[in-house]
Amino acid sequence: MIRIRLGAQGLGSVRFAVSPVGSAGDLLSAIGSSASTLAPPWRTRTTHALSRHRLGLLAVVGAGGPRGYAPDFLRPEPHAFQTDIDTALHQIATTPHDRIRYELTAAVGGHSWDPDSSRPAPRQLLGALDRGEDHFARRLADEMARFWHAALAPSWSAVRARLEADVTARASDIAHCGLAETLNRLAPNLEWHDGELVIHLLPGSVHQLTLDADAVIMTPSVFVDRAVFCAAEPPGAPDPRAPLIVYPAAKADCLPSAQDHPLIGAMRLKLLAELSQPRSTTEIAQRLYLSPATVSYHLQILHRAGLVTRTRRSRHVLYQRLGGTKPGTR
């Protein structure tokens, strides 16, 4: 069990973020520890990317991690709601040396909560570390970049649209029932109780941790079905960062194809119903009695998901549903 004591100030500093490199890390972890939970297209694409591009070090360190631990520096702290992939990769490549050494102590020597582990650290990991922390960080960033472009980038528009829609739904929940109740709804093993965020681990886990925090970052993921805790910061940890909790995004089928991305919410269904022919943001807003800003926001998400086309005619940008078919039909 993990307990994060926040208090009133910390609760007020809880924020949400969408992380492309975090999603790649979740996909790696899933293929390493629970591949059967992934849809077959994701399993095929992930294993193909790892083998074709010879991403052996990334597979050892990130796909479940040696001794069951994936170092937190592979999931840099997002400093904004959305961090682009290049910025995140730069964060990995420039991880401070003492942070790398601190985190890899568990990978090489075993967890402090599992001192009896007798499994040796993988030779590939030890060999990479022998060349120094700079080389180690740069190589992992390079392998993560190749994995991202091969496995996740082709579907990122659809995945990102789902993650953004999830955060939008959570914002609505906060407005209607408050932050504490919203946190209780994020995952079956996550609860807010007496000023603490409590993460219940899998049966049989002996890991116990309680820490104080001034903030927590919540990131949705399409590749987890339980809350996952990252970035434990006990006293004395170098280059400390805010605790980060990955939680399962709202249920929907998410396959490696933008065309298969499900529509989330009645609003976007209404918009698609209006787009059997090209229409501008202003025209749709007038037809549905909405503000142009609201329509523009939803159209941007539909466009990134690959569900509508966008063309410019004179001074107007026109949107149209792909194929001109009715929503929900093929």
Rank of each mutant, 00 (worst) to 15 (best):
E191Y: 04
Q320G: 02
L318M: 05
A215G: 03
R304K: 00
S19I: 09
L302V: 08
E77R: 12
A121Y: 06
P240Q: 13
D260K: 06
A70N: 09
T311I: 00
D214M: 01
A158N: 07
V308N: 05
G236H: 07
C177M: 02
S33R: 15
I217V: 10
A17H: 07
N184T: 05
L57E: 15
D130R: 08
L186Q: 07
S276D: 04
A49F: 05
P122C: 10
P122N: 13
T309C: 02
T325G: 00
H53N: 15
A250K: 10
A273R: 14
E191K: 06
R287T: 12
S314F: 06
A169Q: 09
H207N: 01
L125M: 05
A106N: 04
H135E: 10
T311G: 01
W156S: 00
S112N: 11
A59R: 15
P256T: 09
V317R: 07
P40D: 15
R43P: 12
D225N: 13
M267R: 08
S296V: 01
R5F: 04
T294W: 00
L209Y: 09
V21I: 12
A242P: 09
L140D: 03
H176I: 05
E103K: 07
M218K: 05
A35C: 10
S117C: 15
A213Y: 09
R54Y: 14
H53Y: 15
A128H: 07
A80E: 03
Q320E: 09
L179Y: 03
L202N: 00
V224T: 11
M1I: 09
P235K: 13
H149W: 03
L202M: 06
F229G: 07
A293C: 06
E283A: 11
F223W: 01
A161M: 11
K251V: 15
L302E: 04
R287W: 04
M267A: 14
A88N: 06
R138D: 01
R54H: 15
A151M: 01
T309D: 10
P76W: 06
L190G: 02
W148N: 08
E133K: 01
Q286W: 07
V61S: 10
V228A: 11
T219C: 03
Q124T: 11
T182K: 12
R279P: 09
W148I: 09
V317E: 04
I2A: 04
I217P: 01
L152S: 01
A169L: 13
L190W: 06
V108R: 12
G109E: 14
A107W: 03
A273Y: 11
I31S: 08
A107R: 00
F81D: 11
G323W: 08
S155C: 06
L104D: 07
I245V: 06
S291N: 01
P238A: 13
T87P: 03
L190E: 03
I31V: 13
H53G: 12
A49P: 08
V61M: 14
T210C: 00
G12K: 02
S51T: 13
G22I: 07
Y289C: 14
L58E: 08
T47I: 14
A158D: 07
